[in-house]
């Protein structure tokens, strides 16, 4: 039963990873941008929520209403003012600029909040749990997982059923022809980054409620998100959820074998899938 329990907990953890991955996947899909600072932006969101919750004296759930637009606006400005200037055929400029951004965010957080671990206090709900047969499931992990499913369903809906999604897909297909349709590429890219950062804000707040965080953990959150994207298959949002779940389960099973194997076994599963299915488990058919 312990093993079944580990699988269940890992699945729920995978929801969080899927949210890390969704923002990454979104901007890669629209503008082929890989944001090295993605993990640090997740952590930044957690700190924004921390400060918001303290200043306003409200629950982290309420702060979400604040953190999402703040991060989205930040994302839009970041894209318009900085990242758009690096977009082109050469992958080096965006990579190095987001890398520099990652170092800046990390150290700015360090200067502002110190290296001490922090946590978002959500109150009694943190420890609440219910039993399904012999397995005890935390309410918080279930909320996180449900949110992840909702976020991915929402992104899927935006992509395939709204004008914004059409603009994203058209720009992704052919940037110059999309301009002919009256779509300003710089603005479309800005909106994609804003949406990505909105998802990141949700991910960051839930990260902060589930576990403690400090300024240095951004790198590994980027890696988890990236692994979920590659395992699930590029360009497939539901695949990303599956990728997150596989990664989460690999980690909890690894941790059951030996506490030191938790993160390592996730990496090993990722490398194994990369070796046998380089395009991921659920690659987009038309990709």
């Amino acid at each position: 039963m312990d093993w079944v329990n580990a699988v269940v907990q890992g699945t729920l953890l995978g929801g969080l990873y899927a949210m890390f991955a969704a923002g990454l996947s979104l901007i890669f899909g629209v503008m082929r941008l890989v944001n090295i600072a993605h993990g640090d932006l997740i952590v930044l969101s957690a700190y924004v929520a921390l400060s918001g919750a303290m200043l306003l004296g409200v629950s982290p759930f309420v702060v979400l209403i604040l953190a999402v637009p703040v991060m989205a606006a930040f994302g839009y400005l970041l894209q318009r003012l900085v990242l758009n200037r690096t977009m082109g055929d050469d992958i080096l400029p965006p990579l190095l600029v987001t890398f520099g951004l990652s170092v800046i965010i990390q150290n700015a957080l360090l200067a502002a909040y110190s290296a001490d671990p922090q946590k978002l206090q959500a109150g009694a709900i943190e420890t609440a749990a219910f039993a399904i047969g012999p397995i005890t499931v935390g309410v918080m992990p279930v909320i996180v997982f449900a949110t992840a499913v909702a976020v991915i369903a929402g992104l899927q809906w935006v992509f395939y059923h709204t004008a914004l999604g059409r603009a994203f897909r058209a720009t992704s297909d052919r940037q110059d022809i999309a301009q002919l349709m009256g779509l300003n590429r710089a603005h479309v890219f800005g909106l994609a980054m804003a949406l990505s950062m909105a998802v990141t804000a949700v991910a960051g707040v839930f990260l902060g409620m589930r576990t403690s965080f400090d300024p240095a953990i951004g790198g590994s959150r980027l890696i988890f998100g990236f692994e979920a994207v590659i395992i699930g298959g590029l360009g497939n949002l539901w695949g990303t959820l599956a990728g997150g779940v596989i990664l989460g389960v690999a980690q909890t099973l690894g941790a059951k074998l030996h506490p030191g194997f938790q993160v390592l076994s996730g990496h090993v599963v990722f490398l194994f899938i990369l070796a046998v299915r380089p395009r991921g488990l659920f690659p987009r058919i038309d990709g």
């Binding site: 897909r169 297909d173 110059d176 301009q179 002919l180 779509l183 300003n184």
Partner: peptide
């Protein structure tokens, strides 16, 4: 920019059609 020109009322049917492959005909 092309989007500003388009807004003024100039449309181009580009050589080679260049439709958006991930959009349906209607989209």
């Amino acid at each position: 920019r092309a989007d500003q020109v388009a807004a003024l009322g100039i449309a181009l049917v580009p050589e080679g059609r260049l439709l958006f492959p991930s959009l349906s005909v209607e989209e």
